[in-house]
Each structure stands twice: as C-alpha cells, then as structure tokens.
C-alpha cells in the first residue's frame, strides 16, 4: 500500500520537474515583459528536435545537447523579443496575444512541414533503465531530467537574487515604470528574460528527449500544464511556479492512481479551482518574485 503511494508521489515529482522548466519560462516572461507567451510549448518542441537531430546525426547524447539547445534558444528568445515583441508592447494587449499565438501556429506548422507528423525517439543507454530502491522504481532518464531541472531552477533563482541584471529583472517585474525611472534599460532586460525563458524551454526539450517522443504537437501537451502551474503559483512568481509544478505532477499521479486514469487532470484542475477560491492570488501570495 505505502509502496503504491510512494511510487505515485515519485512519479509525480519527476514529471513535475519538467512542468517546472516550462512554467518558469512562462511566468518569467509574464512577470518581466507582461505578456503571455502562447508559443512556449513550441520552443520546447524545438528543443526536442535539436536534441533529436544532434543525437540522430552525430550521436550526441540528448543531455549533452543541452549545451546546444539552451544557447540556441536563448538567442532565438533575444531575437523574438527584439524584432517581434518589442514592436507590440504598448497599452493594448491584443497585438501581444495575437503575436505569440501566431508564433505558436507558425512554428507548429513549420515543424509539420519540415519534420512531418512522425514520432521521433532517441535511445540512450539509460532510456529504459530504472533504479530499484526498496520496492520503488526510479527511471534514470527522468531522475536525471528532474535533477537538472532543479539545478537550472536554482541557478535562475541565484541569478535573479544576486546579479545586477537579475535584480533589474525582478525590479522590472515588480514595477516596470519605476524600474525604468531608476535607469533600467527595458529592452535589454526583456531580451534577457525572453532568452532565459526560451533557454529553459529548450532545456526541457532536451531533458525530455531520452524518454519522450518528439512530434510537432508535443509542446501543446506540456504548455497546458505550464499555464495551470503559472496561475496556481501566482503569475510572475518563479518560486511559485516551481512549487506549483511539482504539486501538480504529484496531484496528477495520485489522481490517476486513486480517482481514475482519465481523471488525473481533473484532480489538477480541482486543485487549481480550490486554490483560487481560497487564495485568489495563487500560492505565491500574489507577489511576483
């Protein structure tokens, strides 16, 4: 009995780590730039394809391709901010929504055209391995993904709290106008925020590759969870998104075990509704950090 519960919790935490990488990106962009990036899932997809092609063409381990997918997507993020988002930032929200939504559709259909709808998987020596600890199974690929995801989240936290640029980003997310008055260059901060957010999406893609299939629609699977986590953990709050993602992973897993295999998401959404009912600002307490 306890084994089943413990196993469910472990499964939930491990997948929650991946949700966290996606949702931290979304919440960072929202917090700093104040736009909702509907295309975040598609950048996860791009990260997966980068890892897939590096593994397939050059035999590079998907985990090592992290060092390619993250910088590439960082640059993409800077370019997206500088050439696209910067032009629609203004008092009206609509162009921003249309822009990121259009970006999502564009990337999705480009991927369909270039890579076809086929599923692509990468086999690594650890893809199908699992650690066996006292009756519990911990899949190695997922454990690695979880550890790296947590390390990246921690690194981001340190960056936001100790560096000038990180502090500038937090300042911009707390009050953009005052931050600008204090001499912070908004476009520079926004570019870095987009870059980091997309790099995290790329990292999620690379970390997923050893145990999940890449296909053009794959981002949509993860972005839904990310949006829920972002709201649950207070919009713009990085730590909140991280904790909410892990909670959602566990809630989903326990939901599948004890409510029904098609009800995992019901538990997640029930948790979201209850949180919003009693704490409308989300778990982060309404503060963007």
């Amino acid at each position: 009995m306890w084994e089943t519960v413990a196993q469910a919790v472990i499964n939930g935490l491990l997948i929650g780590g991946i949700y966290a990488l996606v949702s931290i990106g979304v919440t960072l962009i929202f917090g700093v730039v104040k736009i909702v990036n509907f295309a975040q899932g598609e950048f996860v997809m791009i990260g997966m394809y980068i890892s897939f092609f590096l593994a397939n063409q050059f035999g590079i381990d998907p985990l090592l391709s992290l060092f390619v997918s993250m910088p590439v997507l960082f640059v993409v993020g800077v370019l997206v901010q500088h050439f696209l988002i910067r032009r629609v930032l203004g008092p009206n929200d609509m162009p921003q929504i249309f822009l990121t939504f259009a970006l999502s559709l564009l990337l999705l259909n480009l991927a369909l055209m270039l890579f076809s709808a086929n599923y692509r998987t990468v086999h690594t020596s650890y893809s199908d391995e699992a650690l066996h600890v006292g009756g519990l199974y911990i899949p190695v690929a997922k454990l690695i993904a979880f550890v790296v995801a947590m390390a990246l989240s921690a690194a981001l936290w340190v960056f936001l709290h100790t560096t000038d640029l990180g502090k500038a980003m937090r300042a911009a997310s707390q009050n953009r106008d005052v931050a600008m008055l204090m001499g912070i260059n908004p476009n520079r901060v926004f570019c870095v925020a987009l870059g980091i957010a997309l790099a995290l999406a790329g990292a999620a893609g690379s970390l997923l590759m050893p145990f999940y299939s890449a296909y053009p629609f794959v981002g949509q699977v993860f972005v839904l969870m990310a949006f829920v986590a972002v709201v649950l953990g207070t919009l713009g709050n990085v730590m909140g998104a991280l904790i909410a993602s892990l909670m959602m992973g566990v809630a989903e897993s326990l939901g599948v075990q004890y409510v029904g295999a098609d009800s995992g998401l019901i538990v997640v959404f029930a948790m979201l509704l209850l949180t919003l009912a009693f704490k409308p600002t989300g778990l982060g307490g309404g503060r963007a950090r």
Partner: peptide, 18 residues
C-alpha cells in the same frame, strides 16, 4: 481503465496496472 490520450507520463497508469 480509460485514460486521457496524449499523456505526459505513463508511470502513474503503469503503477496502477502493477
């Protein structure tokens, strides 16, 4: 047991099968 198609992780389901 029905499940929602397109899940992110099969381990909760397989845990149940187990």
């Amino acid at each position: 047991e029905p499940y929602s198609a397109g899940f992110t992780d099969a381990s909760p389901l397989i845990n149940k099968v187990k």
